[in-house]
Nucleic acid binder design. Sequence first.
RNA 1: GUGACUGUAGCUCAGCUGGUAGAGCCCUGGACUGUGACUCCGGUGGUCGCGGGUUCGAACCCCGUCAGUCACCCCA
Length: 429
Amino acid sequence: MAKLQAIRGMNDILPDQTPNWQYVEKCFQGVVRRYGYREIRFPILEQTQLFKRSIGEVTDIVEKEMYSFDDRNGDNLSLRPEGTAGCVRAADQHGLLFNQQQRLWYQGPMFRHERPQKGRYRQFQQFGVEAFGMAGPDIDAEIIQLSASLWQDLGLENYLTLEINNIGTAEDRKRYAAALTAFLVFHAEELDDDARNRSHSNPMRVLDSKNPDVQEALKGAPALVDYVSDESVIHYSELKSLLTQLGVEFTESPRLVRGLDYYNNCVFEWTTDSLGAQGTVCGGGRYDGLVEQLGGKPTVAAGFAMGVERLVLMLDSLGKIPEATAQVIDVYMVVVGGQLAGSAVLLAKQLRQRFPEIGLITHCGGGKYSNQMKRAFNSGARLAIVLETESEQPLETVKIRHLIDSGDSVSVELANCGDKLAEILSISE
RNA sequence: GUGACUGUAGCUCAGCUGGUAGAGCCCUGGACUGUGACUCCGGUGGUCGCGGGUUCGAACCCCGUCAGUCACCCCA
């Protein structure tokens, strides 16, 4: 029988890697705490309808990337491809959005059936922030500033650049899309197949084309700016002013279009060139119409999501993860001779009770002294406690040996082992 | 979904133009050493991703499939 293996594009994160993840998660949590955001947790599985109605029926995510299936009741469910839809659903369902403001954050796995490559996986981790009930550009500035704080804490501030754009309201874009489609149809012969196909279904995506010929043909195309309402323009320029006051550098990218339909007005992306083709580390913007679109009362909102794999990848390749994050134990107990197993587990139990903060491994499975010592060294422990007696003799003394600073060892009465340990590790009880 | 490259012991890899597999590390037994090290000797471990085909014979050729990597696409 063939060996079972993980589903394509779904990664196992092994013990050598998990400290890196914990480090990043700790940084997230520190930042959101400072900004007063509270955690919300919602299911990984939702009605497929939720994503269709929020992300948009004709987006790639919904059209060809969702893990959807009928459950035993015949309901069509999907693994969440992003977090905002579920967050809005949960918050609205429980009345969190009624006449109030909310600052929320979440973290968890998302699922998209794409072809895997560096920084892009079928199950991936997102960390996101959503703010509800605040209409002004100040909240937009706040969440951007929040993300910038995180880069600072992670030491990535010099490796990420912020791009922003104003994509107007849904109405603005509708009028613009019509004009753009007309332009594209007129210039159809200069476009490639892909661009022609999108001219009607999703004309704004054509602007993103990397085909130089298409970009050439786009010269003279109508600009979104000219279709954006005055209100949006004012909001946007206020945001820019706030960012400038905050010292957050940005570049304006008129071509920046988000792939999810619910965004409006200000959108932004943090990108890097150190990740290959998957340069976007964080993306977000306003989505003022989404709550209402999903059946709630009209509620303005803004948020962003970031890809944790991409961040971990980036930190790893840039050497930005502090060494101290790796988990090490403090004490390794070497047990020579099977008759000492009882004494060993008992001593270990007592020490763990007395020193809850230290990590202690008891050697299990026997084996000769030299091999046990080898494991003790390889464990990274500072100290080894050696239990050894002449055969049949009761255990009276143990040896405590330094493994890192020196090779010194001291012999202590079994009963005084804890005191000696406290002294050596400078633990105040 | 499309394309290119890759897939040999737990890990890193070698294996010339086809003749049924090797090294280092790791692990382990022993020698030495007042006891993890070093050195020396020995050992475990692979139906060469999987399935077909060509051939007297394939890890090496062909087809399919799965997976990985990178790019397109898409996005976090």
